[in-house]
Simulated assay, not measured.
Amino acid sequence: MSVTRPVAVPGRVPVGARVAKRLSGGAIYLIVLAVGVVWLIPTLGLFISSLRKASDISNSGWWTVFSHPAQLTFKDYTTLFANHGIIQSLWNTVMITVPATVLVVFLGALAAYAFAWIDFRGRDWLFVVVVGLMVVPIQVALLPVAALYRNLHIFGTILGVVLFHVGFGLPFAIYLLRNFFAAIPRELLEATRMEGGSEWTIFRKVIVPLGLPAIASLAIFQFLWVWNDLLVALVFSNAKTQPLTVALQSNMRQFGSNIDILAPGAFLSLSVPLVVFFAFQRYFVQGLMAGSVKG
């Protein structure tokens, strides 16, 4: 029994190809734009709520501001920046996020270069261990690290929170950067060595410029993770060292009476990562172009 196969009609374009062609045009941009607008609506609502009085927030929705623009005021931001606890928490967030990001990027880049281009005994097995550490949940280490911090007398300090973020951020950083660094042509490294360059010179003048796209991406990820962290800070910080996320969570217990602090504080906590993201995005594009030219 013979099986009859469908014969393609000459000049007839398949339905899937027609749909893909239509979506690759202006339609896909309209869809992406619509999705982006929908995702931005909660952010817009939070921003407008931060500019309204607590009484207005309790009595009506944020969208009523379009018909009653007189509701807008900067009084809540004035109250926020006059709150010593919130300002201290904001400063604590900066003191935690910046060192945790810089240390992870710097140490991760050095380790990734070693795993990619320096031949030493046990390198592959050690890299397997580093990759395995990526699957270890943070929750597993909370109690052991807390006991260790008490013995070292750094529990409840900013240093303890930073070290925890660095320890759990390094495995992913090493894995991400090592794969990127390994793709750099060996000839560039050998040429630098022939000119008398040391390993540090190769890392600084070859690896970092060509690896800037991956380094910038890692910096963005690490900054966002640490800035928005609540669990680690909730466990290892105290009233004096708590970041902004913990301070806002504490005010959530009295939502009705603290809405004038929560709305502007939440938008402030949201806006800083956005500013950092767009600032690093510019360097990310520059690094990508520089890497393509040098490669």
Score class of each variant (00 low, 15 high):
V3S: 13
G16L: 13
R18Q: 06
R18K: 07
G26E: 03
I31V: 14
V35G: 00
L40I: 04
P42E: 07
L46P: 04
S49F: 01
I57M: 09
W62F: 11
W62D: 07
W63V: 15
T64D: 14
F66K: 06
P69Q: 12
A70R: 12
Q71W: 13
L72P: 12
D76G: 00
D76H: 06
Y77Q: 01
Y77E: 01
T78N: 06
A82S: 11
I86M: 13
V94I: 11
V98T: 04
V98H: 04
V105K: 12
F106L: 14
F106D: 02
A112K: 06
A114N: 04
W117L: 05
D119L: 13
F127R: 08
M134G: 03
V136N: 09
L142I: 12
L143W: 11
P144R: 13
A147H: 08
L152S: 11
L152W: 14
H153E: 15
L159C: 02
F164M: 15
F172S: 12
A173I: 09
F180Y: 15
L188E: 08
L188D: 10
E195V: 04
G196Q: 12
G196D: 13
S198H: 09
E199I: 06
I202L: 04
F203P: 10
K205M: 06
V208F: 05
V208T: 10
P209R: 00
P209W: 02
S217K: 00
I220G: 01
S237I: 05
A239Q: 15
Q242W: 01
L244Y: 02
T245S: 15
V246L: 03
M252Y: 10
A263G: 00
F267C: 02
S271M: 14
V272F: 15
P273I: 03
P273M: 01
V275L: 15
F280L: 14
F280V: 00
Y283R: 09
G287W: 01
V293L: 15
